[in-house]
């Protein structure tokens, strides 16, 4: 763990431009270009006018920078008969996101707490089924969920989709919280019990404050996951409640009208902006989230 104790791993650093280093950095830089290229293409295309796009190619930098495609993508682009741009999808996504993230994390953190500190007969069995459920292709559950939501009167509405996100976010989030609570020393829990604190009191006064970093990881995980969802949005909501990803796809892949590539790329970049900002702002926490989900899941 402690690098200062074990010393550097590689051979003793020789010249900075050894053949080895040139190979390593060269490869990394070339590969980086492949990863960065689409981001670059999105940005430059969204800043060009259509005549310029028709004359040049996707990679050429803009000669005359214009922000008109951004305005158009946000406020004027058409899907079907609605021509109020992506802003509609953006606000829909926000409306879906806030309750979904809150509910799914609340439910999963309590689940994880119950599973690690208040085990009951069968709790591990249910947990294992939950984790296996994360591997079941969504497709097999899509239709029965439609029936369930219809029975509850939630099909097509906002809360139906919130419920679906809560259900499908549960395996990974429960795992995340369970593992974290399990790592908290048992003595703390026992001391609270001796002092007479019950299930909820221990949760709200001891466990929740201690788990704040994990809550942040969970929020990052859920915000990006739910923002990027397409399948559930298209199935469980009606067109006027479509999230941003669905509306974006409808705008760009619509067969009517002339293709405005600059508006399309501005719209695509706008949709990607939320997860990108979260990704670059959260840094290592994002990595921690996916690692928690991936390595043990």
């Amino acid at each position: 763990m402690d690098n200062a104790m074990t010393g550097p791993r590689g051979p003793k650093p020789k010249r900075r431009f050894s053949r080895n280093n040139i190979f390593i950095y060269g490869t990394l830089i070339v590969v980086s270009m492949y990863y960065l290229l689409p981001l670059y293409v999105m940005v430059v295309t969204s800043l060009k006018g259509m005549p310029e796009i028709r004359m040049g190619n996707v990679f050429s930098p803009p000669v005359e920078i214009t922000f008109e495609p951004w305005v158009k993508a946000w406020a004027e682009a058409c899907t079907g008969i609605n021509c109020d741009g992506l802003s509609r999808g953006f606000w829909n996504s926000v409306r879906i996101l806030i309750p979904s993230v809150t509910l799914s994390i609340a439910v999963a953190s309590i689940n994880g707490y119950a599973l690690s500190n208040w085990k009951f007969k069968g709790s591990e069995v249910f947990f294992n089924i939950l984790i296996l459920g994360a591997f079941i292709p969504y497709q097999i559950m899509l239709y029965p969920i439609v029936i369930l939501l219809r029975e509850m009167g939630l099909y097509g509405g906002l809360w139906g989709l919130v419920l679906v996100h809560t259900v499908f976010g549960m395996p990974i989030l429960t795992l995340l919280f369970r593992n974290y609570f399990a790592s908290i020393p048992d003595e703390l829990f026992k001391a609270a019990r001796v002092d007479g604190a019950g299930f909820w009191r221990i949760y709200f006064q001891i466990m929740m404050p201690m788990a704040l970093p994990i809550f942040v990881v969970a929020i990052i995980l859920q915000v990006t996951g739910i923002w990027n969802d397409f399948l559930f949005g298209v199935i469980y909501t009606k067109p006027d409640l479509y999230p941003m990803t669905v509306q974006l796809n409808n705008i760009v892949n619509s067969v009517q009208g002339v293709k405005e590539y600059n508006v399309n790329m501005a719209a695509t970049l706008l949709t990607g902006l939320v997860p990108l900002i979260i990704y670059f702002a959260s840094g290592k926490l994002f990595v921690r989230g996916i690692a928690a989900g991936a390595v043990k899941g």
Binding site: T224, N228, D229, N253, T268, L276
Partner: peptide, 10 residues
């Protein structure tokens, strides 16, 4: 961090 929709369209 990006959605498949954004990836696909780019």
């Amino acid at each position: 961090a990006l959605s498949f929709i954004v990836t696909g369209l780019v």
